[in-house]
């Protein structure tokens, strides 16, 4: 597998949607830099802009698993989790660099606690990729990115607007709930990684009440019967 991955790296790198990710990253950096550009000194505004930057970049990452050749490569022996992991691994350095740049664009005195805000960003990015993985698993479309992006954007807006206060995720730095909110962000990150991992796995069975194990066994018995009758028919 390591040799396969080495061979794949360069080609897989070319299949990634760098244009979309780059555009989203550029927009995100612009948002992150707004406080510095405008000379605003509000800590709260700076936090909002940094979160908006994270959302912008996450909206780019949902296109990560878009693959126009999906159906052509649907039955290759390289497992889907390997292919997905490679794609994700290839954007991790770029994502880390982008995030460092975004943080540095925020003036130091306005910068939120780096570890906590990095946790938020990580959870948002993981949600984006998990959404894409689930879309690939559950649909046949080759480019699920736009739909997942719409879903992610809508979810983010709904969480900001209508999420119950006691489970708040987007809280200001001075808020008493900051620490608790970041415990929840850790849960979101863990959940997103798990969902993403599950989404990456190619199912061996379709979920269906008709596909119950007993019926499957009946199918295998039928295959053995078919084999016997086929042998009888042969001259």
């Amino acid at each position: 597998m390591p040799r396969l991955s080495r061979e794949l790296i360069f080609t897989a790198c070319r299949t990634l949607p760098w244009g979309v990710v780059g555009t989203a990253g550029g927009a995100g950096l612009l948002l992150a830099a707004l406080t510095r550009i405008t000379g605003e000194t509000g800590e709260r505004l700076s936090l909002h802009l940094l979160r908006a930057a994270v959302l912008a970049f996450a909206l780019g990452l949902v296109f990560l698993l878009d693959d126009p050749a999906r159906h052509t490569t649907a039955t290759v022996p390289t497992p889907r989790p390997v292919r997905f992991t490679l794609r994700v691994a290839l954007v991790v350095p770029a994502t880390a660099a982008w995030w460092t740049a975004a943080l540095l664009l925020v003036p130091p005195d306005l910068r939120p606690p780096v570890a906590d805000i990095t946790l938020e960003a990580g959870a948002a990015f993981a949600l984006a990729v998990a959404g894409a993985a689930v879309a690939v698993r559950c649909t046949e479309v080759t480019r699920p990115g736009p739909r997942v992006a719409a879903g992610l954007l809508t979810s983010a807006v709904l969480v900001m607007v209508g999420w119950p206060g006691r489970w708040a995720l987007f809280v200001p730095v001075q808020d008493d709930r900051w620490a608790a909110a970041h415990d929840r962000w850790a849960v979101v990150l863990t959940g997103a990684v798990l969902v993403g991992a599950l989404g990456a796995v190619e199912p061996l069975r379709r979920w269906s009440w008709r596909g119950a194990p007993g019926r499957r066994a009946a199918g295998r018995r039928g295959l053995r019967r078919a084999g016997r009758s086929a042998r009888v028919q042969e001259p």
Partner: peptide, 27 residues
């Protein structure tokens, strides 16, 4: 060969078949 085969349009014919060959574990 699926009904509607898709490609990475910026690949050359050689590069695309080579890509599939790598995915077919030809290392």
């Amino acid at each position: 060969l699926p009904q509607t085969p898709g490609f990475h349009p910026d690949f050359t014919a050689f590069e695309f078949v080579d890509y599939v060959a790598i995915l077919k574990e030809m290392t």
